[in-house]
């Protein structure tokens, strides 16, 4: 396939997905019963009828839902205006931005560790198929798959705090709250150990399984036999011919898995009271803070769509079959 066509198709697909998310978000928002003004400014704020009417006009709520209100909402979202959080009385975008960094730190660490470990172990398991390494790796990933994320978090929390004296939650100790994170790195590291470990165990099983089946498929290909016929050792064949071919699907799968990563973050941040998007999502859910919930959903969905698109671009650089022409 032509690279330009490939990219155009991917851009088109990303835009369609984005449109689905945006429309869904808008519809869900409108489905909520009661006065939409309340939905914008919160339930318990006392305002006069005049102010209400003014707000109504300001937000265009006196006009038809479609297309006027939809276009207004779209314009606001595009400018980063996601409404005001009921519970925090702050603009949603401001709240989200404040939490984004912490979540990226946690997810990033978990992803990097699990990709390195998972890919290496999956490679070994697929290569040494049906040996003790393989059976061990498979058992691990099956169990990792069956463990509920939040429960693994609870167990590690209980074990880590009881036996290792690790902190039970938060991102820094109370005395360090408010200081920039890079000034209190040892404390942050200490707090990150358990949540990162939970995420790493969780994702690792997944990457291991994917890499294992990917490498096994590649090793069954004819060009591997050609490489062996050339007189290469198993290790040489693996390094020069199998690895790159097996890694290609992983790039796409890592991106697709980001949705799964986000779920992990919601559970882990809840269990470890980690001050990120996931924890905020759960709080918004409990407090029924809809603007916050929907803003967070929009941000998460858009990030995952964007990450998928970036992975597709990266793929065109890695696979000559797409790059050429």
């Amino acid at each position: 396939m032509n690279r330009r066509d490939y990219l155009l198709r991917k851009i088109f697909f990303s835009l369609v997905t984005l449109a689905v998310v945006v429309v869904l978000n808008f519809l869900l928002f409108r489905v909520l019963p009661g006065d939409p003004v309340r939905a914008v400014i919160g339930r318990n704020v006392r305002i006069s009828a005049d102010t209400q009417q003014a707000l109504r006009e300001q937000f265009g709520l006196d006009r038809p839902v479609f297309p006027d209100q939809f276009l207004t909402a779209l314009g606001q979202w595009a400018r980063g205006n996601l409404g005001v959080s009921w519970s925090l009385r702050k603009p949603v975008s401001e709240v989200l931005l404040a939490k984004l960094g912490n979540t990226l730190l946690l997810i990033g660490l978990g992803q990097i560790l699990s990709i390195i470990l998972g890919v290496a172990l999956g490679l070994l398991a697929g290569w040494k198929r049906k040996t003790a390494v393989d059976v061990g790796a498979l058992t691990f990933s099956l169990i990792a798959w069956a463990i509920p994320t939040f429960w693994l978090g609870i167990i590690l929390l209980a074990a880590g705090s009881t036996w290792l004296g690790l902190p039970t939650g938060g991102i820094v100790s109370p005395s360090n709250v408010g200081k920039p994170l890079y000034t209190v790195l040892p404390d942050v590291t200490h707090h990150l150990i358990l949540p990162t470990l939970t995420l790493t165990i969780l994702y690792m099983g997944e990457y291991m399984l994917i890499m294992r089946s990917s490498i096994m498929e590649v090793l069954g290909e004819d060009y591997i036999l050609t490489a062996k016929a050339k007189g290469m050792s198993h290790w040489q064949v693996l390094r020069k011919h199998a690895l790159k071919n097996a890694m290609l699907p992983i790039v796409t799968l890592i991106a697709i898995n980001l949705g799964f990563t986000v779920s992990g973050a919601i559970y882990v941040e809840t269990v470890f009271s980690y001050d990120g998007l996931g924890k905020m999502f759960q709080t918004a859910l409990v407090k029924q803070d809809y603007p916050l919930l929907q803003g967070a959903f929009l941000l998460l969905a858009v990030s995952v769509i964007l990450a998928n698109f970036l992975a597709d671009i990266l793929y065109t650089y890695l696979d000559p079959r797409v790059k050429a022409s």
Binding site: L32, S263, F281, L293
Partner: peptide
């Protein structure tokens, strides 16, 4: 394409928003 779209949208946030909305009804 519909399955592709569903695959990309993060599942847990979507479910949470859906469940919360439906409950609100």
């Amino acid at each position: 394409r519909l399955t592709d779209v569903l695959l990309v949208i993060p599942d847990l946030p979507l479910i949470l928003v859906l469940v919360a909305t439906v409950r609100q009804l």
